[in-house]
């Protein structure tokens, strides 16, 4: 279920919470890729990063949203 986030009586979209979570996952992945050296081997790493962020966001929505 998509729920709103109530902050001080105001309702916000749950994406306000989901996006930072996905972002944290992206940062962790990026670190891991750097450490293992995979990052340099990727073709167009920026594309990959953005795409991974979107995938993470979808996963977060899937889990936190209750589907």
């Amino acid at each position: 279920m998509l729920e709103e986030v109530a902050v001080g009586g105001m309702l916000f979209s749950p994406l306000i919470v989901f996006i930072p979570i996905a972002f944290v996952f992206s940062v962790v992945t990026r670190f891991a890729l750097f450490k293992t050296g995979t990052y340099q081997k990727l073709w167009r790493p920026a594309w990959c990063e953005v795409s991974l962020f979107v995938c993470y966001l979808a996963i977060v929505v899937l889990i936190a949203g209750g589907y």
Binding site: L2, L15, L42, C48, V54, C55, L57, A58, I59, Y67
Partner: peptide
């Protein structure tokens, strides 16, 4: 190089599908 390109393209394709799913759902 081919494998590298394919890996990136797969991830991008997944992202397109996932993004579309989130959009539709929202």
């Amino acid at each position: 190089t081919v494998v590298r390109i394919i890996v990136t393209l797969i991830i991008v394709a997944l992202a397109v599908l996932a993004g579309r799913w989130v959009w539709e759902r929202y």
